[in-house]
Design a protein around this nucleic acid. Sequence first.
DNA 1: TTTGAATTGTTGTTTATACAACACTTTGAA
DNA 2: TTCAAAGTGTTGTATAAACAACAATTCAAA
Lengths: 187, 187
Amino acid sequence: MTSSKTDLRVIRTRKLIMDSFITLSSKKEFKDITVKDITTEAMINRATFYYHFEDIYDLLEKVLSEVLLINLNDDFLQHNELNEGAFIILFKAITNFQKSLSNRCHRGYEETIARIIREQLEIIFYKMLLKQNVTTENEALKMTAVILSWGIYGASIEWRTSNQEIQPEEFIKPAIPYLMAGIDGQK
Amino acid sequence: MTSSKTDLRVIRTRKLIMDSFITLSSKKEFKDITVKDITTEAMINRATFYYHFEDIYDLLEKVLSEVLLINLNDDFLQHNELNEGAFIILFKAITNFQKSLSNRCHRGYEETIARIIREQLEIIFYKMLLKQNVTTENEALKMTAVILSWGIYGASIEWRTSNQEIQPEEFIKPAIPYLMAGIDGQK
DNA sequence: TTTGAATTGTTGTTTATACAACACTTTGAA
DNA sequence: TTCAAAGTGTTGTATAAACAACAATTCAAA
């Protein structure tokens, strides 16, 4: 137990910064967002930002894993089961997110983003598989989740690098029968 | 000049408290809102509340004059001139606001609210009169604003104490020809 | 009416944050 | 290219705010 109850100011300031970043992200490209922008929006001093985050990429990473995909996660788990429609929704969410990110390459943060997205996808898939498969053993489900997360993420990269003019929805559709077959087989 | 630039923390905290109070006001009656409720919503310590405000009535007073009616003020000045429709909108806003307040009588704060509402009304009326009367001298316009603010506020009290089953809109309509006559006379 | 829980308002101490100033880097226009 | 403006990241000091503890009051339920 390391939880010696963090100071309320720390919690509040982190939240203010993250919320401001999310707000700004919906208005600007990531590459156009400065630390000053964020701290102004959050009404905190710029020096305070560096007390909590190494830099703006560190913030991005934390927002990514703690906020954006966690939210997706919750929404998703409540309303959907892992069927054709679910794959399409997920794939659209990922491609949307990638579109909103800058294409500027700096400090290898794209690798970081990729890793986080895959990790979060894996969690989502595992939870959903667990919900609809009482019989199959957990190790098998975990493995399926890993494969699905890499597979779907890979597909989104394929979509991004080659032909973005095709709608994500249409892009992923051909793969769905294959994806579903594996899952149905486990039932 | 006393403006030696206030600490950003002070501005932020005041805003957090006021915003939280407004948020809570839309969910609960005033009399059911505790200081703890506000500070929890605002993510600040309860002691900090008392650093900025004497008590919850002091907060109410400040929110009233700094936020609620100021907003009405701005919206109003941009979109309307002082005609029949404007009187109806204003009157509805006041009666709505009074309905939303608690009827609990404590520390004579109703008098305070009344005063603030009248003051704000006076400001609104004066600005609008100024906008549409280039000729009339300012002292006369100020006096008109005073009379209008007391008159309209009095009408809202009349509405509140006697027959709330009549719509505010219908209640004020009979008085409008008289109100407008005085204004048109000044043009 | 009595009791216990919740709310109010206050105080001393600790700590997170504001502020100002700094050197360094990036960027965009002359 | 050169220069000014904007952005980054850091530090020492001052201060607002957190925390914990307290007595006093209010309020609902036994």
